[in-house]
């Protein structure tokens, strides 16, 4: 595969950081939501309106013509206010949403780190939840078994692993969620607002792991309001405004301009 072409350059991680091959490519990506004009909830209403040809939609373009290229080993931040299209962009990269027009190309294993523990079941034990969550991320049972001890050790919940999840604290759930989602080094790690959960010690541990993965070539995509986080972690940043990329470049400049516009 073409990956071998870049092999000599890979020996020096710091310089390779910006020079890796493109792993996330968005070409002219637009996403349209169709919002029914009036909220129709019953079939009867729908049938009546359909007969009268009164079912009308509002088109809402959450993303408009977004071009983006992120390379292997880059940490890329996206800032923007609520409703600017951040979560839609995230869904497009997480492969959950197909763009209405345009093209998305991704290379490698994508791990979403979104709302940790959303898939956990309160009545199942920590152990059962690890296997279930890991399967949701696409890993087989055997693969999870191999990594199980590492996951438990990282989450630091060895004493509680066989207790039902409903007895866990919020911090413990978040720790377990992070440990499962990052058990394998992904090629693309998509990070939401999640890093604000857990205690300071654990946040530090998460950052250390993310940093280590990035050194090894993982691309990190951070989508957040938290401009400090973007300045601290990212190599480049983009400012998303009303579905378009308003500006793209150095994180310090981008976040400063964004903060200024927000007043």
């Amino acid at each position: 595969m073409p990956a071998t072409k870049a092999a000599p350059g890979r020996a020096a991680p710091p310089s390779a950081r910006r020079g890796g091959e493109p792993v996330i490519q968005l070409d002219g990506v637009s996403v349209r939501y169709r919002v029914p004009h009036e909220r129709i909830v019953s079939i009867k209403e729908y049938a009546i309106k359909a007969i009268r040809r009164r079912v009308t939609f509002d088109d809402f373009w959450a993303l408009r013509d977004v071009d983006l290229e992120v390379r292997a080993g880059e940490a890329f931040g996206i800032v923007g206010r609520n409703g600017a299209g951040k979560s839609t962009l995230l869904k497009v990269i997480a492969r959950v949403l197909r763009p209405t027009t345009g093209r998305v190309r991704l290379r490698g294993l994508v791990a979403p780190l979104l709302e940790l523990g959303a898939a956990f079941h309160p009545e199942l034990t920590g152990r059962e939840n690890v296997y279930l969550n890991s399967a949701l991320l696409g890993f087989g049972k055997a693969a999870t078994r191999d990594r199980f001890d590492d996951i438990v050790e990282f989450a630091d919940i060895a004493n509680f692993i066989d207790a039902p999840l409903r007895t866990y604290s919020t911090g413990m759930v978040a720790r377990l969620g992070f440990a499962v989602a990052t058990a394998v080094r992904p090629d693309i790690l998509v990070v939401d607002e999640v890093l604000s959960v857990g205690d300071v010690g654990f946040q530090e541990k998460c950052r250390t792991r993310m940093e280590a993965y990035r050194e090894a070539g993982t691309t990190i995509m951070i989508i957040t309001h938290n401009t400090a986080l973007v300045r601290q972690l990212c190599d480049r940043a983009a400012w998303l405004d009303a579905g378009r990329i308003r500006d793209l470049g150095d994180p310090d400049t981008i976040t400063r301009d964004y903060e200024r516009s927000e007043g």
Partner: peptide
């Protein structure tokens, strides 16, 4: 390396069957 391209899309039906086989552990 798994490659995802939103443009090259197999018929939804076939894609779903392949997905189910891949996620059988789930």
């Amino acid at each position: 390396v798994p490659v995802y391209d939103s443009k090259d899309r197999r018929p939804a039906f076939i894609e779903e069957v392949i997905g189910l086989v891949r996620y059988r552990d789930l």
